[in-house]
Nucleic acid binder design. Structure first.
Lengths: 124, 124
DNA sequence: TATTTGACTTGGACTGAGTCCAATGTAGGA
DNA sequence: TCCTACATTGGACTCAGTCCAAGTCAAATA
């Protein structure tokens, strides 16, 4: 555990946190000015491998990193401004995929992304 | 309707077709050697705007284009080789998101991505 | 038929996100 | 203290995609 890794972990803390790698880097630099982009990418990659952080790709832009890895959840994304909320739908979508629709795949995971407009963008 | 646009539309035809823009370009060049990448991007963008083709972003790599835009469906992706199948789960995930989990958003759409291993990758 | 017009296409430069790598720094054990 | 292994750095590089000025083409107009 180096200072660099601690700073990256500190930046990724809280509810509904979904930062891009560059945002993580910007905040890490504020705490540890000499930290490099490569280290941020390395550390994020390790956190993902360890299962401490989830990668979220809600659009074609940059990947986002979600520290809320221990409670399964899905995402609600504003189509206009990109705001993201963690959500917990009822039901089990894995059970909703019949065998005839599995094409022989071993299905292990499912991601659900809800899209819409956040209150600010809907009101404007 | 120009020759270039016709070629792009022809390339995007069939079941379970999910090509990247570069793959579309490569196949279009086979039919019309002087077609440029920019035109492929322009045409794909127009097809998406027209609702004839869907953009699919199942991973951090390139966007894929899915001509099966008229029958709503979701995707099953092989985590190892990236193979994609169109699937039709039962149930309605939109109804599974309670009001208390909507954070004031106007929710209009939901994407479900199943992940697992295709028969080839699971067997290897 | 010759000209004009406007949409379409082209190729190349450019951007943003991410990866790769050689060189450097550093911490802890022998 | 010296060694070794690992972490970090910065810069070059790749890949996907966008942007733009210039060129092309065909249809409408004169």
């Amino acid at each position: 555990m180096t200072a660099q890794r601690r700073v990256v972990a500190e930046v990724l803390d809280g509810e509904h946190v979904h930062l891009t790698a560059d945002e993580v880097h910007a905040r890490a630099v504020a705490k540890l000015p000499e930290i490099s982009r490569a280290t941020v990418y390395n550390t994020l990659g390790e956190l993902v491998t360890l299962g401490e952080v989830l990668e979220v790709t809600t659009d074609k832009r940059a990947k986002r990193y979600d520290p809320n890895a221990h409670r399964p959840h899905h995402h609600l994304v504003c189509a206009h401004c990109g705001a993201i909320r963690d959500v917990h739908p009822t039901g089990n979508p894995l059970a909703d995929l019949p065998d005839t629709e599995r094409f022989g795949f071993t299905v292990s995971d499912v991601e659900v992304t809800y899209r819409g407009l956040c209150p600010e963008c809907a009101g404007a």
